[in-house]
Design a protein around this nucleic acid. Structure first.
Length: 395
DNA sequence: CCCTACGTCTGT
DNA sequence: ACAGACGTAGGG
């Protein structure tokens, strides 16, 4: 389990350091914190770019590539994000740099990068004091919260936000090229770099540490050997490198993971101890496990029968249907103690293939999203190198 | 009260 | 087996 002793700049700056002060490093959540980086990082600018990019990304890509009505939640999400007040701290604050070896789960992000570093985007561990920025809230209790959040004017600046950002960024779906002239990024029609395309295409095209090489962070270089990792929302917990599809679910997953942080960090998709309702409980409605791939998916596909018949069907999107709930209640469950690679492998493979198949029928944009979704399934379900294999299946 | 979604029933 | 419809639990 990753434990960062100290967060500064949204970064786990040092290991074994007793306090930020000792290191003489400013620890702030907002502008002040980047004072030393001010020339490179401008919060407002970054936010503007971010929001406009999201808006245009969806507006353009979604309209261009698919019928937006098929992806109502994508649109909603875009709208929310675009309208949201700044939801994450300055760029620098989102970095979690670690001079330590990633633990298994996060090593997933190495994927095909052929590099021991993994980069995520996240938030610094919220300080115990304050709740600046209305940081309460946390995630919704249900995947459905993804939609319900639409009621609020802005995204919560806590877990939810962290996940939105962490995931979006880790997969690059929403990341509008923070680099000026990226060498390895793939530009979309808006001229924005999409890291997922980078990450999923070739392993070695981006050298340097992490997914985005040295060009992210507005040119902020990182010391050699510094590993940048996603801290999810609860730095040190199981980080959630899931995709833009799976924000709300991710929050919940994260919570669950934390609760099980001792032994089995994150319940696998096949045997989630966090299911809450046992088979014996019967009669009561079972709840989503919150940790499986579908549960962690945020956005309805908009095309499945459940989505199409939302009004009358009262069913969750097929792609968001909890793996556990798909099983017969009380039916021989719990047999698999699935922490093994083998199982995870099969699981992710199925999903990866599924999404790959889906992608063949859909747009390039969706393909990317789907790929990301698959990856996140891997990340969620595995604790090992399976992800890289999953990636290889997809590419 | 509204919305989401689980469980169940029914039809194909 | 699957899809669709419906009742209704649960949360906000």
């Amino acid at each position: 389990m990753l434990q960062c002793p100290w967060w500064g700049f949204g970064v786990c700056l040092l290991k074994g350091t007793s306090s930020p002060e000792e290191k003489g490093i400013p620890q702030r959540k907002t502008k002040n914190m980047v004072s030393g980086l001010a020339p490179m990082l401008d919060y407002t600018t970054e936010m503007d770019r971010y929001r406009s990019s999201i808006a245009s990304f969806y507006k353009t890509n979604v309209n261009m590539n698919m019928n937006v009505t098929n992806f109502p939640q994508s649109a909603k999400l875009a709208a929310r994000l675009a309208a949201a007040a700044p939801i994450f701290p300055p760029t620098a604050a989102r970095l979690g740099a670690m001079a330590t070896t990633p633990w298994g789960c996060h090593d997933n992000m190495n994927m095909n990068m052929n590099h021991p570093a993994a980069m995520f985007w996240g938030r610094p561990k919220p300080s115990s004091s304050s709740g600046s920025g209305g940081g309460g809230g946390g995630g919704s209790s249900d995947g459905g919260g993804a939609e319900k959040h639409g009621h609020t004017a802005s995204l919560p600046v806590s877990q939810g936000t962290a996940h939105h950002h962490a995931m979006a960024s880790s997969n690059g779906n929403f990341l509008p090229g923070y680099s000026g002239g990226t060498d390895c990024g793939v530009m979309n029609k808006q001229g924005h770099t999409h890291a997922d395309m980078i990450g999923l295409s070739e392993g070695g095209s981006c050298n340097g540490g992490g997914v985005m090489g040295g060009s992210f962070l507005g040119g902020l270089g990182l010391p050699p050997g510094v590993i940048v990792m996603a801290m999810g929302s609860a730095g040190g917990g199981i980080s959630d490198a899931s995709s833009a599809f799976q924000m709300t679910g991710g929050q919940r997953a994260l919570t669950d993971c934390q609760q099980h942080a001792n032994s089995s960090p994150c319940p696998s998709s096949s045997s989630p101890p966090s299911s809450g309702v046992t088979a014996a409980a019967v009669s009561l409605k079972r709840k989503r496990c919150g940790v499986c791939g579908p549960c962690r998916r945020l956005i309805n596909c908009g095309v499945c029968s459940s989505c199409r018949n939302r009004k009358t069907g009262h069913q969750i999107c097929k792609f968001r249907k909890c793996e556990e709930l798909k099983k017969k209640p009380g039916g021989g469950g719990g047999v698999l103690e699935v922490s093994s690679c083998t199982h995870t492998h099969a699981y992710t493979r199925a999903h990866a293939q599924h999404w790959l198949d889906v992608s063949k029928c859909m747009s390039h944009l969706l393909f990317l999203l789907c790929v990301c979704a698959s990856l996140s399934v891997c990340v969620c379900a595995s604790r090992c190198a399976c992800v890289s294999r999953c990636v290889s299946w997809l590419t």
